[in-house]
């Protein structure tokens, strides 16, 4: 009986309010201090993938998770505006492009598709693997950030709109809107 009353009364349900900022200085300070180390660890995992534990996927995920942590601490919207949109899209594309270029380079060097040891560079397999790993890391990190930002935005009303966006809602020019606002 009490359960039914509780579910019927809208006032009794506590809605989870979405706050742009964490009020706690403990959280923001911790994230501010830890972020460089987490990013460094992610990059180390990425670049050191041929010699030790890790690789492109792991390093990319750690790097992307760092951005998500910053977004949770300092607000999703400010973090999205802080990111360079064109760079993010370029990173998303980097993995498939680098992988394809390296794969075709094996073909062009007289080997098979994705044959790495025929490339005309010293330690061909190692450096080709490193290049692919960096591409994978870039794509994985950027895709995680894109998924996070899009899902965070997709579920709510577009509250923050610049005047340029309001004048031309169908205008997809990336130079106007939030991308331009991050140039300050």
């Amino acid at each position: 009986m009490s359960d039914r009353n509780r579910s019927e009364g809208a006032d009794d349900t506590t809605t989870r309010t979405r706050s742009e900022f964490t009020d706690s200085p403990v959280v923001t300070t911790t994230v501010r201090l830890l972020a460089p180390f987490v990013l460094t660890y992610g990059l180390f995992t990425l670049f050191h993938g041929t010699a030790s534990v890790g690789g492109g996927f792991q390093g990319g995920v750690v790097g992307g998770a760092m951005v998500i942590t910053v977004a949770f601490a300092f607000g999703i919207r400010p973090t999205a505006e802080w990111l360079d949109e064109r760079a993010l899209v370029a990173l998303v594309v980097a993995g498939p492009v680098v992988f394809g270029v390296v794969a075709l380079a094996g073909l062009a060097s007289g080997g098979a598709f994705l044959q790495l040891d025929v490339l005309p560079i010293p330690k061909a397999t190692v450096y080709a693997t490193e290049a692919i790993e960096i591409g994978i890391g870039a794509t994985v990190a950027a895709v995680i950030v894109v998924l996070f930002l899009r899902i965070a935005d997709g579920y709510r009303e577009p509250t923050v709109e610049t005047p340029a966006d309001l004048e031309g809602p169908g205008d997809a020019d990336p130079s106007v809107g939030a991308g331009g606002a991050s140039d300050d």
């Binding site: 010699a51 690789g55 498939p96 992988f99 040891d117 397999t125 794509t139």
Partner: peptide, 24 residues
């Protein structure tokens, strides 16, 4: 081949086609 991490070697050098699909 100089790739000390066998996991990375399998993912990229020997099973590169699968990994290409994964990143796609």
């Amino acid at each position: 081949r100089g790739v000390d991490n066998a996991v990375t070697a399998v993912l990229v050098v020997y099973r590169g086609f699968d990994t290409f699909g994964e990143i796609a």
